[in-house]
Amino acid sequence: MLDDRARMEAAKKEKVEQILAEFQLQEEDLKKVMRRMQKEMDRGLRLETHEEASVKMLPTYVRSTPEGSEVGDFLSLDLGGTNFRVMLVKVGEGEEGQWSVKTKHQMYSIPEDAMTGTAEMLFDYISECISDFLDKHQMKHKKLPLGFTFSFPVRHEDIDKGILLNWTKGFKASGAEGNNVVGLLRDAIKRRGDFEMDVVAMVNDTVATMISCYYEDHQCEVGMIVGTGCNACYMEEMQNVELVEGDEGRMCVNTEWGAFGDSGELDEFLLEYDRLVDESSANPGQQLYEKLIGGKYMGELVRLVLLRLVDENLLFHGEASEQLRTRGAFETRFVSQVESDTGDRKQIYNILSTLGLRPSTTDCDIVRRACESVSTRAAHMCSAGLAGVINRMRESRSEDVMRITVGVDGSVYKLHPSFKERFHASVRRLTPSCEITFIESEEGSGRGAALVSAVACKKACMLGQ
């Protein structure tokens, strides 16, 4: 009897593995994704193909990295998701002549009506938060230079001027797309009239992360975010950046690689679950690469896999709870928690219980395998993109072996128990001629924006502006 049951459990697990095998990517698959990513990057950089390229390769006008001589107080704003952060950054000489960066910050959550109302409502709310922060720190009387981390696709015309191309991540505030974001912020500050600010720089969160990590390690020339969304930036040779005049030196390019796949480059790798996630998203047909990796989508992918296993009578005796059938019910943090389970399955059992399920031991094991399959594919897909960037940098610099540091931020990278190990191992397999160091950014977005502002202020002083 026991043997029969054991055989049935083994057969069930084997069927589960057959279904989950769809998520496995072979090294040849990853090399294919990497080569296609490089081709799209090239198209994004070139003037004649930029418009139709899915990977936009947006110039950021960040050319210099901090040298350690900029000092002063800077205000930093960070808008990239449902939370908005205001930070005071003091850049100065530390002990023994070292450079020191001290920060104080406060988080504000953005109400739904500000995210989806008008641009005026959104930026009025942001300036209200700045006003509140300055009151708390008794700094209303000071006109501070301000660095703005704005983590949406922007076409820069200068370091302090950028046109919002399109909202992502659930934002829909009308009247912002096609307009200068810094102008919208300046107008809102003017409307309030109770404080003055000098907006000197606007950067993407990947750029802010790279600059913040450069402060720790001067070989950091790539910034990457794996959180709600997924994106990367890197220092490109100016001669390859056709959208900006000049051939000397390097400029940081914001790849906006989340949109890779929007022209069909990933079609052969998309599964039924991916198509369902895409169809029910706020932007169907867009940001397809990001939807395979980002935390906004990972939990939902797992939920759809679990429903398939229920329908195949391989999980929960073929019956799903009402909660499990509800879109968004299986949160991405559950994926991390399930994979963090120590082996007694308590954590998995508790999560499934909150979803109205009474799982068996085998159910718990199957749910864990589903989570591992989805998150491992995410790590491997992400590795193909980064390997594409790094191999490109090595080739354009004609280096036999390139040493490089990548600064990384984002909740999936930082909080998932195995993502970074799987990701690092896969990147290294795909970049055999590179020695890569990964560092995690601390308060990256805010500190990085302030350091970019410090560079901009120093330049302005040198130019006598």
Rank of each mutant, 00 (worst) to 15 (best):
M8W: 13
M8E: 15
K13Y: 14
K13M: 06
E14F: 11
E14M: 15
K15Q: 10
K15L: 13
V16R: 04
V16I: 11
V16L: 15
L20E: 02
E22H: 13
E22L: 05
F23T: 00
Q26A: 06
E28L: 05
L30Y: 03
L30C: 13
M34Y: 10
R36P: 00
E40V: 07
E40W: 02
M41I: 04
R46L: 08
E48I: 14
S54H: 12
M57N: 00
M57L: 04
L58C: 09
L58W: 13
P59I: 00
Y61L: 11
S64P: 09
S64R: 06
S64H: 11
T65Q: 13
E67H: 05
E67P: 02
G68A: 09
S69T: 10
E70W: 05
E70T: 15
G72H: 07
D73V: 01
L75H: 03
D78T: 15
L79T: 04
G81A: 15
T82M: 10
N83Y: 09
N83C: 08
N83P: 07
V86S: 09
L88I: 04
V89W: 03
K90A: 09
G94D: 07
E95A: 09
E95K: 07
E95C: 15
W99S: 12
W99N: 06
H105N: 00
S109L: 11
I110V: 09
I110P: 04
P111H: 13
P111I: 02
E112W: 04
A114G: 09
A114H: 15
G117Q: 06
A119T: 07
L122H: 09
F123K: 02
Y125R: 04
I126Q: 01
E128M: 14
C129Y: 05
F133S: 02
K136R: 12
K136T: 06
Q138C: 08
Q138H: 14
M139P: 05
K143Y: 04
L144K: 00
P145K: 14
P145F: 04
G147W: 08
F150C: 14
F150I: 07
S151C: 10
S151D: 12
F152K: 15
P153A: 04
H156C: 09
I159A: 09
K161Q: 06
G162T: 05
I163F: 14
L164G: 15
L164W: 12
W167R: 13
W167G: 15
F171A: 10
K172M: 12
A173L: 07
A176Q: 13
E177D: 14
G178T: 15
N179T: 12
V182P: 08
L185A: 04
D187Q: 15
A188V: 04
D194W: 07
F195A: 11
F195K: 11
V199W: 09
V199Y: 10
N204T: 06
N204M: 05
V207I: 12
I211N: 04
S212T: 03
Y214F: 04
Y215Q: 01
D217R: 05
H218M: 06
C220W: 02
C220V: 11
E221S: 08
V222I: 06
G223S: 07
G227F: 04
T228E: 11
G229W: 04
C230N: 13
C230D: 02
C230Q: 04
N231R: 05
E236C: 03
E236I: 03
M238T: 07
Q239D: 10
L243V: 06
L243E: 14
V244S: 06
D247V: 10
G249A: 00
R250M: 15
C252Q: 01
T255V: 15
T255C: 15
E256M: 10
A259Y: 13
D262S: 14
S263N: 11
G264Q: 09
D267A: 06
D267N: 09
L270M: 12
L270D: 01
L271N: 08
L271K: 05
E272C: 15
R275K: 12
L276T: 07
L276V: 12
V277E: 03
D278I: 00
S280Q: 15
S281A: 05
A282V: 13
N283H: 09
N283A: 10
N283W: 05
G285D: 09
L288A: 11
L288V: 14
K291Q: 07
K291Y: 00
L292T: 08
I293W: 00
K296P: 05
M298L: 15
M298G: 01
G299R: 00
E300H: 01
L301W: 00
L301H: 03
L304P: 04
L306V: 10
L307T: 12
V310E: 01
E312G: 12
L315I: 11
H317G: 14
H317F: 10
E319Q: 07
A320W: 08
A320L: 05
S321W: 04
E322D: 10
E322L: 08
Q323W: 04
L324W: 00
R325K: 14
R327Q: 15
R327H: 10
A329W: 04
F330S: 00
F330V: 09
T332F: 13
T332Y: 03
V335P: 04
T342R: 07
D344L: 04
R345A: 14
I348M: 04
I351E: 09
G356D: 14
R358N: 12
T361I: 05
C364Y: 05
C364K: 00
I366Q: 02
V367D: 02
A370E: 00
S373K: 13
S375E: 13
S375K: 02
A378R: 03
A379R: 00
A379Q: 00
L386F: 04
V389H: 00
V389Q: 00
N391K: 10
R394V: 09
E395N: 00
R397K: 11
S398F: 09
E399F: 08
D400Q: 09
M402D: 12
M402Q: 09
V406N: 00
G407A: 10
D409K: 09
D409H: 08
G410N: 04
S411M: 15
S411L: 13
V412C: 07
L415S: 09
H416G: 03
P417D: 12
F419R: 04
R422P: 12
S426K: 13
S426R: 13
R428Y: 09
R428W: 08
L430N: 03
C434A: 13
C434I: 03
E435D: 10
I436P: 03
F438C: 02
I439T: 07
E443F: 03
S445Y: 15
R447C: 11
R447Y: 10
A450N: 07
V452W: 13
S453G: 13
A454E: 14
V455I: 13
A460N: 12
C461T: 10
L463M: 13
L463R: 14
L463A: 14
Q465N: 01
Q465W: 07
